[in-house]
Amino acid sequence: MVVASYDDALVRDGEMLALVGSEVVLLSELASALVSYARSGASVASLADSLVADFGAPPEADPIALVSDLVRELLDHGVLRAA
């Protein structure tokens, strides 16, 4: 389970700019959607389902693996935290 963890965020045209401590992180549309779905906490599997529903299944790739990589990157930036 992960949950969104930022101090402030701006959303425009589907993209999100998040402030984490003193650092800002500009998220892609996919990452912005992921963080939105994780606002109240979500599992990687449920995030993958939500993103596939919104963006379609990734060609020739496992959505769970892709979402896991993205979640790890967002955890490293502090935009998500383990719940």
Binding site: D7, D8, L10, L17, L19, G21, V24, L26
Partner: peptide, 20 residues
């Protein structure tokens, strides 16, 4: 633009509405 501006802003986290 805001992302670039934020990096050149002193004490951004202390502004009451921060990025807004």
């Amino acid at each position: 633009g805001i992302a670039e501006l934020a990096e050149q802003t002193s004490y951004l986290p202390r502004l009451s509405r921060m990025l807004h």
